[in-house]
Amino acid sequence: MINPIFLEKVEKSFLAGVRKVKALHAVSLSVKPGEVFGFIGPNGAGKSTLINAIMGFIRPDTGEVLIHGLSPKMPESRRKIGYLPEGPRFYEKLTAAELLTFGGCASGMSKKQVMEGIDPLLEKLEILHAKNRPIGTYSKGMKQRIGLALALIHDPDTLILDEPMSGLDPIGRNLLKTIILDLKADGKTIFFSTHILNDIETMCDRIGMIHKGDLLYCGSIDGFVENASDLESRFVKLTLGEQNTKKIL
């Protein structure tokens, strides 16, 4: 069976003024079908860069990226993908119904299928009351929810979520957690990046940790925690190194 997400020695650097800064150092990982994969790392570690490379928004300098066995350069590779960017932006004058109609139809659904799917999805995300309101009038949390609705409207096999919890209040986070667990039960593959380590423990089958563009760990949560007391202390230890961690803790 083909892994929905496959990366092999992916490297990426950006120009910062006149010098090149490496954002990803030979990152290799794969996510298996039906797996929930949590991608963690401190700010600026390279999480979004990696997701952008998976989605084909940026081109890796070297290495290979495959989505469902296809290169991200091919639009067809994204047919079974649902994507939620960090801090999603939308066409503010469109209503939720119009946006979801576009999203569904662009992913190959008929207009009738999309129309049937909009109400239950918005109800599940608790924003059905705002269905016909321009998105520009939504709060930050509502925008995050409509972003998730857009990622889910075409019932994708694989979900790529960049910081899905950001901008959500505790109720919203709890709702999202429930939705992710439901999708997991349906056998969907989920790849998501987050800062919130508590969510990782309850939802993920495997995790990957990135720091300064290096994939420091990829495997089970138990293997990650090792001898540390909890996920957070292990995360801090890996991020800052043994010496600095002792100073902080």
Binding site: M55, G56, F57, P75, E76, S77, R78, R79, I81, Y83, P85, P88, R89, F90, Y91, G103, A106, S107, G108, L150
Partner: peptide, 17 residues
């Protein structure tokens, strides 16, 4: 600039289209 384009090209839509 605001990466709204990601909402579109994250679908099976080519940049040409």
């Amino acid at each position: 600039q605001q990466s709204t384009v990601c909402m579109i090209i994250s679908r099976p839509i080519s940049r040409t289209n």
